[in-house]
Simulated scan of single mutants.
Amino acid sequence: MTQRFIKLGEGYGDIYELLTLVEEMPHRVERLLAFHTIKNNEERTSIAAIFKPTHKGKFQPIYICLEGIPKPKEESSNVRYDAFKEVSEKNNLPIIEMVVPPSDTYHEEELYYQQLIAVLRLNHILPPA
């Protein structure tokens, strides 16, 4: 099975594209993820959705909005993360939260994604390939 991150972007609209994918295909979504990090001295969050593998080709996409929103804090509202939580609750999919290093720790973004896939497999969030 091939598992790969598909980066939607970091902007406001990209987050709503991810939410739309989850809302339009809830039967394909396996898990929702929030990766928290510190990048350029700011707390940032990447949100992601792991989809079920395709029948043909056994491809398992993980759609991600990389470090696109400020890390949510209890004392203040975060509209984009709140929308992610709403989709989570509506589809009965709890958000799995993890603290990870920032993407710029790696020379190539693809290496970063490979590291995240390894961590997700080790934690039994993703099945072995």
Rank of each mutant, 00 (worst) to 15 (best):
V119N: 09
A48F: 10
V29S: 06
H55G: 08
K7G: 02
Q115K: 09
P61N: 05
E42T: 11
Y106Q: 09
V100W: 06
V87T: 15
A49I: 03
S76R: 10
I38L: 12
H107D: 15
R121W: 03
K85I: 07
Q60H: 06
R4G: 02
K73Y: 09
N40F: 03
L120W: 00
V29P: 02
Y63H: 13
L93M: 13
H27E: 14
R28W: 07
L32A: 02
E43P: 03
P102T: 01
K39F: 13
G11P: 09
L66T: 07
Q60D: 08
E30M: 11
F59D: 01
E42P: 00
N78M: 10
A118I: 00
P53A: 06
P72S: 11
E67T: 02
L33Q: 05
L18S: 00
F51I: 04
E67R: 03
V29K: 06
L122S: 07
N40M: 03
G9W: 15
L66S: 07
I15S: 07
Q60W: 01
I95V: 15
D14P: 01
N91T: 06
D14G: 07
F51D: 03
M98A: 11
V79Y: 07
F59L: 14
D82V: 04
A48Q: 05
M98Y: 06
D104V: 01
R4S: 09
L111S: 15
I96H: 03
L66D: 01
R31N: 12
K85S: 05
I50A: 08
A118Y: 01
N123K: 12
A118M: 08
R4K: 15
P101T: 05
L122N: 00
P94A: 05
I47G: 03
Y106N: 04
P70H: 04
S103W: 11
K85F: 02
A118E: 09
N78W: 07
N92G: 12
D104T: 03
L21R: 15
H55M: 09
L111V: 06
E74Y: 08
V99T: 14
Q60M: 10
F59W: 15
E97M: 09
I50R: 03
Q114H: 10
C65A: 10
P72A: 14
C65W: 00
T37D: 06
F59K: 15
T2R: 12
G11R: 08
I69E: 02
E97L: 03
T45K: 00
E109H: 11
C65Q: 05
E86V: 08
I96L: 13
G68I: 10
T37S: 14
I64C: 02
N41C: 13
E24D: 13
R80H: 11
M25W: 11
Q3P: 05
A34P: 10
E10P: 01
I6A: 06
P72N: 11
P127W: 02
V87F: 00
K52P: 07
R28N: 14
H27S: 15
Q115H: 09
E74Q: 12
V119T: 10
T105I: 13
G13D: 11
